[in-house]
Design a protein around this nucleic acid. Sequence first.
DNA 1: CGCGCGATTGAGTAATTTCAAATCTAGTGG
DNA 2: CCACTAGATTTGAAATTACTCAATCGCGCG
Lengths: 188, 188
Amino acid sequence: MSQLLRKHLEEIIPLTNAEFAYILSFFTERKFRKHQFVVQTGNSVNHDFFVLEGLLKAAYLTESGKEYILQFAMENWWISDYDALKNHTPAASDIVCIEDTHVLCLTAENKQKLCAEFQPMEHFFRIKTGTGFIALQKRLLSFMMQDTQARYQQLFETYPSLFKRVPKSMIAAYLGVSRETLSRLSAG
Amino acid sequence: MSQLLRKHLEEIIPLTNAEFAYILSFFTERKFRKHQFVVQTGNSVNHDFFVLEGLLKAAYLTESGKEYILQFAMENWWISDYDALKNHTPAASDIVCIEDTHVLCLTAENKQKLCAEFQPMEHFFRIKTGTGFIALQKRLLSFMMQDTQARYQQLFETYPSLFKRVPKSMIAAYLGVSRETLSRLSAG
DNA sequence: CGCGCGATTGAGTAATTTCAAATCTAGTGG
DNA sequence: CCACTAGATTTGAAATTACTCAATCGCGCG
């Protein structure tokens, strides 16, 4: 199962068996059930999570109870509340399993150590964060420049599998529109 | 002038004189005039830019001629078209000087070399990209969760100096609303 | 003085929200 | 196999918000 992590890392850095074993020793493994909270608003956040199997969401709730989804994470994705993790502040988001989920966990301290002791991992995270940054810029631009219809279309074409795994109300929460509006879109 | 870069780096990594001189040798220096294009849509992008002095915007134009501003960059900020820089694709944005501007330029190749040869710089960029990622997440969330009024308020409180340096039409383009709407906001 | 650019104001239109009600669907127990 | 319920989705209608297009205002500079 953890071979998924190895493949994922090797998309950016080559690894020997010994190196991968060393890297893996910094991680712990956990399984969660559907609906379980991996991170909860207000609590401290200690780990970055790499998804081996399953599906999660990072969600924010307004006082009025509306939910906004910052990110989904499926196999081979990383997820956490990075602001809370980095700054040791209470989580502002909930990270919740949408399916039974299997993750590898890396504490902030271990990430730090791993990067310091083995430069290829520092390189890996630099590159990975860079691609994440670019992807976020694109998402932000799509929020600014495109109408809901176009954003929906684009999401559907980019991640068709997502639509089979999550209810439409969550797609709406990810696109930042009410479920009623989303419903009217997918019809027309 | 380049001491600004040193201070900027030393917020994350300590440096000796020799080390900083070495780092600086990877950069070139350039000055631009107000209204000058640093990056132009359709052209290739070769550098990441660190701003020593001045002010720039990264802007996207729709077919209908509307402008959206992804980012401003003032002193001590980095700016580029990172998607184009990383993937060697034509720029999708214009990066234009709002004031006379003085920058340090780092090619993708030099960044690569610098990171490979001097790990603290790889660390610097990993951390820097990480904070940029977190900031972008917050901006995205504010787009999803807050109304225009609140976004305006927040920008005004976070970067009051910006409002003295750019016309309101650009603030509108950054907030993703029409200048008419922005005008009605700042009044009410 | 008058030009030109940025900012404001007005009026009508389009898109989205909210609140409420109706409908659909999958899973459960009889 | 059917009825029932909880959750998800759709539909309707009124209210809100932002947009567009057009006209006006304000001010600095030649």
